[in-house]
């Protein structure tokens, strides 16, 4: 077994110093070492997008990154968004549009949407669809997710005013 390496990673605003095996996937570090189980794992080969988190503000697939590659990085997971009592506008939009069923893939969609709307605050339906194309959902047929991304954009614009 390879030696453990020291890493310093900020997750949702908290700096964690941990010793990890180089092969530890970032998804496992977030879920099992830190106990932030809102990030889910669906394929472990970078296709389904359930494990999407933000790394330095950019959406990445945490199942195809080693934790050691995130040394010094700033990570944001679904837990960084709203709470059950006060959800983030994107989360509200997903509920209102019925954009989730089993909810397993949902955190990945949310984090993808956070990055996307940050850069594209007013997407058309076609653009919103393209934005979520790298996240798999088996339940919804995506239509309500597309609508939720657009609704979230409107809500966020209203928040800023």
């Amino acid at each position: 077994m390879a030696d453990k390496m020291k890493v310093k990673i900020t997750v949702n605003g908290t700096l964690y110093e941990r010793e990890v095996e180089p092969r530890l996937l970032l998804s496992d570090f977030i879920r099992h070492d830190l106990g932030l189980t809102g990030t889910h794992v669906g394929c472990e080969h970078g296709l389904c997008g359930a494990c999407t988190v933000l790394m330095n503000g950019e959406a990445v697939r945490s199942c195809i990154l080693f934790t050691v590659m995130a040394d010094g990085a700033d990570i944001k997971t679904v837990e960084s968004l709203g709470t059950m009592e006060k959800m983030h506008p994107i989360q509200e939009a997903f509920q209102e549009k019925h954009a989730l069923q089993c909810g397993f893939c949902t955190p990945g969609f949310l984090m993808t949407t956070v990055e996307y709307l940050g850069k594209n605050p007013n997407p058309t339906a076609e653009e919103a669809r393209e934005a979520i194309d790298g996240n798999f959902c088996r339940c919804t047929g995506y239509e309500n997710i597309v609508e939720a991304v657009q609704l979230a954009a409107k809500k966020m614009a209203a928040h800023e005013q």
Binding site: R31, G35, G38, H40, V78, G82, L100, G103
Partner: peptide
């Protein structure tokens, strides 16, 4: 009607099988 289960699913507060430790 909006779903009762959504807030916990949307905020990472649901427990799925691999979350059990």
């Amino acid at each position: 009607i909006k779903r009762n289960e959504d807030p916990r699913l949307l905020t990472g507060n649901s427990t799925f099988i691999d979350d059990i430790e």
